[in-house]
């Protein structure tokens, strides 16, 4: 319990401090509420529009969950293919890097022409944004295995699959999880970009924010942004739980960012 307090209290305190400063700034500077609404206007919007925000949240949450699932799958499969096959590495890896140079608003418009107004173009945008950190970190992780360890396993007559299972995969896991963390962290942003850059969107928190801003309902737009913010943190928390399962680590705070004990390379002198 004390530990839980220790991990949740500091960020909450910082959050409250930021809101207080914000409120003070708005009061003192006399800035127009259309340009910057004060927290005391924003926060009540959260329950005043609870139904609206909830239904939009569900739309966004769905594309985030689906998009991330596809992005992770694509990311891991691509990383494996790049790792296992030199031709794939030479042929595909540069394009993977290049894919991040595509301006998303442009591709968003184009994707709608190709994929229609439904869910698909939004998922495509999310996947395009989120698969990249997964591929890069997983490829690096798989390559980080100690070659001498592979040699050792081969003297035990390990098959290719066993080399992967007993050496490469566990060696790659921390890096792959880091990539997953980045993907999840940007997943919500990616969903927002997907919603505002594809035509024919009529629901979702991103859509909500954009239309509210157009209709000069600034406090509600900010309230929607707060929901997005909370959602991003929740996604991160869920990932932390999954990670704990996967790495068999003892219980530790899900949102603790300094969590992984750095293991220095074993202390021999070679």
């Amino acid at each position: 319990m004390r530990r839980r307090l220790r991990t949740t209290l500091p960020p909450l305190a910082v959050l409250v401090a930021i809101f207080a400063l914000w409120e003070a700034y708005v009061q003192v500077s006399g800035v127009s509420p259309i340009l910057l609404p004060a927290p005391h206007e924003i926060v009540p919007e959260l329950w005043r529009n609870a139904d609206l925000l909830w239904s939009n949240f569900k739309v966004t949450a769905e594309i985030v969950a689906l998009g991330l699932a596809i992005a992770l799958l694509v990311g891991f499969v691509l990383a494996l293919a790049i790792h296992l096959s030199p031709p794939v590495r030479r042929g595909v890896y540069p394009l993977v890097v290049g894919s991040q140079a595509i301006p998303i608003p442009v591709i968003g418009v184009l994707l709608v022409f190709w994929l229609g107004f439904g869910l698909t173009p939004k998922l495509a945008v999310i996947v395009l944004i989120c698969f990249f950190p997964v591929v890069v970190t997983t490829v690096d992780g798989l390559a980080s295995v100690d070659v001498e360890q592979l040699k050792l396993l081969r003297t035990f007559d390990a098959s290719r699959w066993q080399l992967f299972r007993f050496a490469e995969l566990p060696a790659a896991l921390p890096a792959a999880l880091s990539g997953t963390r980045i993907a999840v962290a940007v997943g919500v942003i990616a969903a927002f970009i997907a919603e505002i850059s594809t035509a024919g969107t009529s629901a979702g928190l991103g859509y909500e924010i954009i239309t509210d801003l157009r209709n000069i309902q600034q406090p509600r737009a900010y309230a929607a942004a707060i929901v997005l913010f909370a959602f991003a943190i929740a996604c991160f928390g869920v990932l932390g739980l999954l990670e704990r399962r996967l790495t068999h680590q003892p219980a530790r705070p899900v949102l603790a960012f300094t969590y992984r004990q750095r293991q220095l390379p074993t202390g021999d002198n070679s």
Binding site: E148, K151, L153, T155, F156, D157, F166, P170, Q263, T266
Partner: peptide, 29 residues
């Protein structure tokens, strides 16, 4: 004869316990 190598560095797998490291060859078999 089939030979097993004990390399210069111990090359223990950092993510496995001492027991699982020792048992590695058995797992592979």
């Amino acid at each position: 004869q089939p030979a097993a190598l004990m390399p210069q560095r111990d090359l223990l797998m950092g993510w496995l316990s001492a027991l699982d490291n020792a048992a590695l060859a058995l797992r592979i078999a």
